[in-house]
Amino acid sequence: MNEESAPVRKIIHVDMDAFYASVEQRDDPALRGRPVAVGGMHRGVVAAASYEARRFGVRSAMPSVTALRRCPDLVFTRPRFDVYKAVSDQIRAIFADYTPLVEPLSLDEAYLDVTEDLKGVGVATRIAEEIRARIREETRLTASAGVSYNKFLAKLASDQNKPDGLCVIPPGKGEAFVAILPVKRFHGVGPKTAEKMARLGIETGADLHAQSRDFLAHHFGASGDYYYNLARGICHRQVKPNRPWKSIGAEDTFFDDLTDEPALAAELDRISQTVWRRIGEKGISGRTVTLKVKYRDFRIVTRARSLDRPIADRAEFLAVGCALLHGLMPAEKGIRLLGLTLSNLHDPAAEPTVAQPQQLPLLA
């Protein structure tokens, strides 16, 4: 199926700009214009970095000590996930005014299928402009958006003019847009795959386009056909508002290493509250509890236990987690991080939906 014969959709990808850090700068005027990192300064990693910090090479998932070396004036703030969640809910309420077909990827980004928008605007670009304007007005934050005829291109476009930008890739332009981009920017091409492609002489979309299906299938197996399509601006993935969760969890890095079991259990109690709140918000249940332990030397150990029924409540969730922790005691080394996750999830409210694509006008 080529680009011209594919069912035409109107897809928007909205991505908040440096979301966590921008919320902190919004709420504390003293942080505005300064390099800000959300996370722990003494221990842990950077959860998010402001654009001022990114100019120094500070990035999310970077160890805090590395971030400080790159930017000695970096200001650290502790994350406030309850605030970020509340702002995310505001943004999703805006999305819901335009379409029920919203697929959140995280608190700060989502796909929207506005092929048939609720307001009857009819033009995806205008809808994206309205949404960005409303986000700015109602949250005092900025968002970037990409507009195109499939999810792959919309996500590429949203990153094109960041921050506070809009990019539109209309029908007939996707293949040319993709050709000049490095393949490492393609959603679905991770670092290891990008390295393998580079060894094969594939650096850009044009390089990928030059390869045959057989060549890509030989080197990348079942993913070869997917990469073949990406090089041509083709993506058949639908926006799925009921995208199933595989697991729900939380973890925390401690200010100091812990070895005492009661102190560790107290941290698990706190972590379990966060996880159980998220579980309650989503109205789902699960059977498997997984404990994650990271030691002082960064070695990670996980332990899991599955019940033959859903976990009854937070008390049972915590009890299973503490039992798993007890099995690792006494701690052979100081523990710097604990995490708890619930998986084998079941959502009784989720009903499978199958969208029927149709040929419709797009970005007039």
Rank of each mutant, 00 (worst) to 15 (best):
N2R: 09
N2I: 04
I12D: 00
F19T: 08
V23Q: 09
A30F: 06
G33A: 04
G33Y: 08
R34F: 06
G39C: 12
S50F: 13
E52P: 04
A61D: 10
M62D: 10
V65W: 13
T66F: 04
T66P: 00
P72T: 10
V75I: 15
V75D: 07
F81L: 15
Y84P: 14
V87T: 14
D89A: 14
F95Q: 03
A96P: 06
L101A: 04
D108R: 01
D113F: 00
V114E: 03
V114P: 02
T115W: 02
E116K: 01
E129I: 03
E129V: 03
I131W: 01
R132Y: 02
A133K: 10
I135P: 01
E138S: 13
R140M: 12
Y149D: 01
K151I: 06
L153I: 08
L156C: 06
L156I: 07
L156E: 04
S158T: 10
D159R: 07
P163H: 07
A176W: 00
A176E: 12
V178Q: 05
L181A: 09
P182Q: 06
R185Y: 04
G188Q: 05
G190E: 02
A194V: 04
E195H: 02
K196V: 03
A198L: 08
G201F: 05
G205D: 02
G205Q: 00
L208Q: 07
R213N: 13
R213A: 15
F215C: 08
L216Q: 07
F220N: 01
G221R: 02
Y228W: 15
N229S: 10
L230R: 09
A231Q: 06
I234N: 04
C235G: 09
R237Q: 12
Q238P: 01
V239R: 00
K240T: 10
W245N: 14
I248Q: 07
A250T: 10
T253F: 07
T253A: 09
F255C: 09
F255K: 13
F255L: 13
D256E: 15
D257T: 11
D257M: 09
L268Q: 08
D269H: 14
I271Q: 07
S272L: 12
S272M: 10
Q273G: 14
T274E: 14
I279D: 02
G280E: 13
G283Q: 07
T288R: 14
V289S: 06
D297L: 09
R299L: 13
I300L: 12
T302C: 01
R305T: 09
R305N: 10
I311Y: 12
R314S: 10
A315E: 15
L318A: 13
A319D: 14
G321I: 12
C322Y: 00
G327C: 08
A331S: 04
A331P: 06
E332P: 01
G334Y: 11
G334F: 09
I335L: 04
L338K: 00
L342S: 09
L345P: 13
A349Y: 07
Q356E: 11
Q356N: 08
Q359K: 09
Q359W: 07
L360A: 08
P361R: 14
P361E: 14
A364E: 14
